[in-house]
């Protein structure tokens, strides 16, 4: 690889690697699997760099989307059907993410990331638990609304309402980040 490309990808990794790894780990749960996902996701992003369209979102969001989809592929491929139950149980035990000060070398970026983490964590924690669980099952487990209804033994209409209402609330709470993004 040419030295310039090496440095470019290195910067990309330094900027987004930590977020992508944390996301992958939250979905696949095993550190070794999370590393696979990160390597695959950056590889795919790098391979498809030419198709990236800044008008459709930030680079960070794009790489996170790729990573999430690779992570979901992985857990589906391994047939971890019990994962949803575990996660639902885990969520009702101790709620969502606990913010931990992220590391990194760029103080400005650290502040931005940490602000995003705090805002998102707070916004999720502020949701009524049934709404949060439904959204997290969709996002982190890749379940469809009918699958969520089945897992939680709730009517499909109830799940649809929860997801819609929860996403509306998140959008309201995350407005500062949405304006600063992309």
């Amino acid at each position: 690889m040419a030295e310039g490309e090496d440095r470019a990808l290195g910067e990309l990794y330094d900027r987004y690697g930590k977020t992508v790894y944390a996301l992958a780990l939250a979905i696949v749960r095993e550190p070794a699997d999370a590393e696979e996902v990160v390597v695959d996701a950056f590889g795919q992003a790098w391979r498809q760099a030419g198709s990236f369209d800044p008008a459709r979102g930030s680079v960070g969001a794009w790489i996170a989307t790729i990573a999430r989809s690779r992570a979901l592929d992985l857990i589906r491929a391994r047939g971890r059907r019990t994962r949803a139950y575990e996660r639902a149980a885990h969520l009702s035990d101790d709620g969502v993410a606990t913010p931990i000060a992220p590391g990194g070398t760029d103080p400005g970026r650290r502040v931005e990331t940490s602000e995003a983490r705090q805002l998102v964590t707070r916004a999720l924690a502020a949701l009524p638990e049934p709404q949060r669980v439904a959204i997290e099952l969709a996002y982190f487990e890749g379940l469809s609304q009918s699958e969520i209804a089945e897992r939680l033994a709730e009517p499909l209409g109830t799940i649809k309402t929860r997801i819609r209402a929860g996403m509306e609330k998140l959008r309201g709470q995350l407005t500062p980040l949405l304006e600063g993004a992309s």
Partner: peptide, 14 residues
């Protein structure tokens, strides 16, 4: 909004 959910996970050091 969905993209931001990536920030809603516990921090982890790769």
């Amino acid at each position: 909004v969905a993209g931001l959910l990536a920030h809603g996970v516990p921090a982890a050091e790769p």
